[in-house]
Simulated assay, not measured.
Amino acid sequence: MTPTDPPPTKAAEARAAAKAFVATLNPRPATTTIQDLLLLVSELVTNALRHAGALTGLAFGADAETLYVQVTDPSSDRPQQRIPDLSGGTGGFGWPLVLRLSKKTDIRDHPPRGKVILVAMAR
């Protein structure tokens, strides 16, 4: 995994970091895969900022078949599936989107406090 240093403070910075990471890959993923990666990163980072109060780490990795995104935040609370707010007030769309775009999602404790979310998506 290749960490960003320092961690982004906004989703736009996280997307820029994801684009920079993808630019190092050979072969480069398909355009639709890159778009999905950017959306996934936006949602993960936005959720960390909104629900955990901060993003304490962001890292990327890849192998021949998979792209990996790792997000670390200071909250031990796990993401919760909730009914989306269709009026646009409180969200509820991000976590289902993350689960849909990923082929595997793993959430682990990150002592002394916090969690790590590792998402794998098809390359």
Rank of each mutant, 00 (worst) to 15 (best):
P111R: 04
A120S: 10
H51C: 10
L40T: 00
E65L: 14
D77C: 06
S87Q: 14
Q80N: 09
G114F: 03
V45D: 01
R108W: 04
L38T: 12
S102A: 15
H110P: 00
I83M: 13
T66S: 13
A64E: 15
V41T: 03
R100G: 13
L38E: 09
K103E: 13
Q81N: 14
I117P: 01
G114E: 06
T66G: 11
F93A: 11
D73H: 08
L97K: 06
F60Y: 04
P74K: 05
H51E: 12
A64C: 11
Y68Q: 15
S76F: 12
A62K: 01
D77T: 14
L37V: 03
L118Q: 10
L37G: 01
L37I: 05
S42I: 07
G88W: 07
L39N: 07
P112Q: 09
L55S: 00
A120H: 09
P79W: 04
F60E: 00
F60L: 06
V71N: 00
T72C: 14
D36L: 05
T90W: 14
G57I: 00
K103Q: 14
A48Y: 03
T90R: 15
K104M: 12
G89T: 15
G94T: 06
V71T: 07
W95K: 01
L58W: 00
R50Q: 14
I83W: 07
T66Q: 13
P96K: 11
S76L: 09
G92F: 05
N47V: 02
T66W: 08
I83S: 08
W95R: 03
S76Q: 11
I83F: 09
Q80P: 04
N47R: 10
D106Q: 15
V116D: 05
G61T: 05
V69D: 03
G91F: 01
S76N: 14
A52C: 10
E65P: 07
A54D: 15
P74M: 05
I107R: 02
R78L: 15
D36K: 11
Q81L: 15
V119W: 00
T105R: 08
L38D: 07
L44N: 03
D109V: 07
Q81D: 15
L38G: 04
G88L: 08
E65Y: 11
A48V: 10
Q81T: 13
W95A: 01
F93C: 11
D73C: 06
G57D: 05
R113Q: 13
P84Y: 04
P111Q: 04
A54C: 11
P111Y: 01
K115F: 06
D109T: 06
S42M: 04
T46V: 08
L101P: 00
T46L: 07
T56K: 09
Q80G: 11
R82D: 02
L86V: 15
F60S: 01
